[in-house]
Amino acid sequence: MKNTILQVEDDPNDVFLLQYALIKVGVNDPVQVAGDGQEALDYLAGVGKFADRKAYPLPGLVLLDLKLPYVMGLEVLKWIRQQPGTPRIVIILSASGQKTDIAAAYHLGANGFLVKPAEAGKFQDMAKAIKDYWLTQNIPPAEVAGAGAPGGSR
């Protein structure tokens, strides 16, 4: 079964570069985009149009930028970790890699922290790291039945 990836990113260039890089390294999983922190919260909570989980499935992997309009990335991470039910894998994709951000991200329970490359051509290296490690080696948390996914077979 394909696992939805939620990319939380306000910069359209970075959205494009990462999606292109993911396709180039052979990631077939559908990528959904939330363009700001509030939209990410709405998506994950299933608010408004995001209530349709067929169109907007809960993601197995969240790729989270830190500097976001309305609600900052660390706030989104904090909210995710406060939710009951299935834990989500959250990888921070930051432009800066500031020490305070790194410490705060791990304190709030980020699974990983990658620095976005300055050059467009390097996005494929990051996409490959995500594919090889998080989408291939890592065993993700299983969806808990009843957490928005009707009719679990387990």
Binding site: G97, K99, I102, A103, Y106, G112, F113, L114, V115, D125, M126, A129, D132, Y133, T136, Q137
Partner: peptide, 18 residues
């Protein structure tokens, strides 16, 4: 697998806060 795992955690992912 070990190569991928160690490369990710020791070389790509940022976790040192010095």
């Amino acid at each position: 697998a070990a190569r991928i795992i160690l490369k990710y955690w020791l070389q790509l992912n940022i976790s040192e806060i010095e």
